[in-house]
Design a protein around this nucleic acid. Sequence first.
DNA 1: GCTTTACAATGAAAGAAATCGAAAGCAAAC
DNA 2: GTTTGCTTTCGATTTCTTTCATTGTAAAGC
Lengths: 253, 253
Amino acid sequence: MYLEERRQAILNLIVDHGRVSVPDLSARFDVSEVTIRADLQTLAERGLLVRTYGGAISATYNLQELSLLQRRQQHIPEKQRIGAAGAALIADGEAVFLDSSSTALAVAQHLKSRRDLTLVTNSLVIAQEMLGLAEITVVMPGGTLHHDTVSLIGPDGLAFLEQYHIRKGFFGAYGLSMDAGLTDGSAPESEIKRALVELCHTVIVVADAAKWGRVGVTSYAGLSEVDTVITDDQAPPDLVAQVRAAGVEVVIV
Amino acid sequence: MYLEERRQAILNLIVDHGRVSVPDLSARFDVSEVTIRADLQTLAERGLLVRTYGGAISATYNLQELSLLQRRQQHIPEKQRIGAAGAALIADGEAVFLDSSSTALAVAQHLKSRRDLTLVTNSLVIAQEMLGLAEITVVMPGGTLHHDTVSLIGPDGLAFLEQYHIRKGFFGAYGLSMDAGLTDGSAPESEIKRALVELCHTVIVVADAAKWGRVGVTSYAGLSEVDTVITDDQAPPDLVAQVRAAGVEVVIV
DNA sequence: GCTTTACAATGAAAGAAATCGAAAGCAAAC
DNA sequence: GTTTGCTTTCGATTTCTTTCATTGTAAAGC
């Protein structure tokens, strides 16, 4: 029996029984427990099962996994401060765009007690975070799911968004610099952001100190298109001064 | 019983009863109260419940997530069999539509090891289920997030989908009857399905036995538009015979 | 308001089981 | 013969759980 056959068989057992134990699998396939653990770890990394101490169970708990990821984010104090400051700029009744960055997620987390708000976002994580909040309308453009950013990307979603009057857009960035402006790591991601920067009346960049002076693969906006940058107090003062001189409001939290 | 299973069971108890107590859980799972407290603390850190003195209660903002989990767990063996049968109808390389029903989710769960597949869906749960599977392309139409079905609903997302050649569509239903055809619980949900039934070359209905003979608020397709129904062996034979006589293939698993 | 009382939570220590890491063994492929 | 990938062995380490002593808390009665 080959390795992949064994792993397939393990998955079948989980589908049938809901759970498997390491000693049991070891006996059944006549390999050491160490080997079984390696199998389980690999399958868990592929998201095909959930590892437990002593065995594994079926992977039908993805929602919780995701919310765990979300909550891991919460513990970064800088992002939370930036998120709170961003949320303070949003009035009830407005329609705002949030991109798929983790800092924009922090903004969303501070909007949970708001009423009559429309959030436009391409981030599945933000949508998930707002689940069950009846007072908040979440609108998503269509697109293809990108696994790394957990967001919908695609040129065709934009036409759909043009019917909304989006007052404010919150954008994360891979980097923020004087000459390259706002930069990101991937081209399709940049494309949708470039269009949204056009669409939003007010462009607000949420970026922690690490982003300053960094330049990513593609630019999606120049500094002249930015109204406000929200960052934390570790941002390099000389760069902050330059950006302010260029007419951009910089909020430090 | 593994740790994660116990924690899952605790969450289920909270969904059912709204609250749990430490001594009760300790007796029920035959572990010490200290262990239960550790479980509750961990689950509270994940945001899945709210800790109280002597026990725990439901985390209101997560109720939606949990009730969805619960819905997924109902009829699990039947739904899983239906899901497997549905997945067997899909060849690698195809583009298929899956709606936001829990039975369509079961189909998706059986597609995880496939390669080169395009899934079109308006269900956030299915999208999340496919997260990290690089071989599977997930496309979502734009729309407004509906909290109860965890799906994107909206008329404008459809234009975007017309560019895809969707071979097969898998649809759940609230009810399935001779005269009303396929029915659903809410009008906007029906609207998007009606359009997708038009768009899909082959329409496959996945519905467990409980759906037969039931009629919901709005119809989204007549039986004449349906190619195949996949159901379980508890489906009423007389209704099955009638539907077959109407020219619909009925697969019983 | 204050105190009592019963219950709940926490910390430390300890034991059993499971896991991990590193080095080594083994087989098939080049 | 060497390489490569999978598997095993064997301590060292971690995780999970319990017990017990101590501290903290809620709510009833004074």
